[in-house]
Design a protein around this nucleic acid. Structure first.
Length: 365
DNA sequence: AAGACGGGGGG
DNA sequence: CCCCCAGTCTT
């Protein structure tokens, strides 16, 4: 209760600061519920700068809930290609279909109903409700947790769900009913541009300078507290560029798990030598003509990292069905979503056979 | 409560 | 190399 009284005093300075300093962002142009929704899903665990071009492209291709609900999966993933966390867009489509069926194509102006939609958790429900509908509910994300921890000099671990809930309760009590959306955005904006996560906080430019306990005590840089993350596990993989003249092999990943439903270059566990690769391909009934080793590459996900090596293998045109899809390199770029994890190797889809540098190191079979 | 789930930018 | 981001879902 004490804290709330203190916190109450941040409302007016924060709103005044936001009114004068709000960034111009594409989704702030005409903040319809749909556009707010799309932006909030894209912004989950993703920086504003990264989202901008995706938001533009996505909302032009799919301008409303009906278009999103009806979009073909491949096209949907292609629009999301490079943004990561691909379940976000699949869940958003499921939610769009629910909105079509249950709410006549209009997002409900109701926090609890929003919360029930696939892919909308407490943060996103609060963001849509407050920004699109002016409903006075909290929208607590990483920015808000950081700002509030510092203002209150809280040493609590912000990764704990209980702490997030406490902060939501605190915000709920001070949120100005007439400016709910502006207040939530102001809190996040402050976290994004002043009370920053990386590097020194810009306290000299902060509208809450005089009310920040962490600043007063000189402990800004040590907050917020977060429990240590687990180390990533390392996985070795061998990536295969399998080509038969013009076409190249790609493979659709399973519908669940890492990079679900996206297309990949064929790849196998372990770092294989040339002979092992050839043996493997023959077992899969390919007839290799030549093989060329490629450089090593690394791709880091949040919880795992791939240490990859690769080969370009030219094979004779397969006579029977394979587990792979053979497509024109150009078509891959245009129609098949391939995650960034393979970007070190996708350039080899295009190299013309017989080019000098490529030929020199070729091993003819 | 813990783990899975991408990718990129900044120090 | 590390951190962390306008988080959510599943187990």
């Amino acid at each position: 209760m004490e804290t709330n009284k203190e916190l109450e005093s941040i409302v007016q300075p924060l709103l005044a600061w936001f009114d004068a300093n709000a960034r111009v962002l594409p989704w702030r142009d005409s903040p319809t519920p749909y556009r707010v929704w799309v932006s909030e899903i894209m912004l989950q665990q993703t920086r504003v700068e990264a989202v901008k071009p995706f938001f533009q492209r996505f909302t032009e291709a799919l301008p409303d809930v009906a278009a999103l609900a009806a979009c073909e999966e491949e096209k949907l993933l292609k629009l999301w290609e490079g943004l990561g966390y691909y379940n976000r867009v699949r869940n958003m489509q499921k939610a769009a279909q629910t909105v079509m069926e249950e709410y006549g194509g209009e997002l409900p102006a109701d926090y609890e109903k929003l919360l029930k939609l696939k892919g909308i958790g407490s943060y996103t429900a609060g963001a849509i409700a407050s920004i699109a509908f002016q409903i006075p509910v909290p929208a607590v994300d990483g920015n808000v947790l950081r700002v509030i921890s510092r203002i209150t000099a809280s040493e609590k671990d912000i990764l704990k769900a209980s702490v997030k809930k406490e902060v939501e309760d605190e915000i709920r009590e001070i949120i100005p009913p007439e400016r709910a959306g502006a207040f939530n955005q102001a809190l996040m904006e402050l976290g994004a541009v002043v009370c920053v996560p990386n590097g020194p906080a810009k306290c000299d430019a902060c509208p809450l300078y005089g009310q920040c306990l962490a600043r007063e005590r000189g402990i800004v840089s040590s907050l917020p507290k977060k429990s240590a993350a687990k180390p990533r596990r390392v996985q070795e993989r061998t990536v295969l560029i399998i080509r038969d003249g013009e076409r190249v092999a790609i493979h659709k990943r399973p519908p669940k798990g890492l990079l679900a439903g996206l297309y990949e270059l064929p790849n196998v566990e372990g770092h294989l030598g040339q002979e092992e690769v050839l043996k493997l391909l023959k077992k899969k009934h390919f007839s290799p003509i030549r093989i060329q080793p490629l450089e090593e590459a690394k791709h880091i996900f949040s919880h795992v990292e791939w240490h990859m090596t690769g080969y370009v293998i030219t094979v004779e045109e397969p006579e029977r069905e394979t587990e792979y899809l053979f497509v024109e390199p150009r078509e891959t770029e245009e129609n098949y979503p391939v995650p960034a994890a393979f970007s070190a190797y996708t350039k080899y889809l295009q190299i013309k056979l017989g080019q000098e540098k490529y030929k020199e190191e070729n091993k003819e079979l």
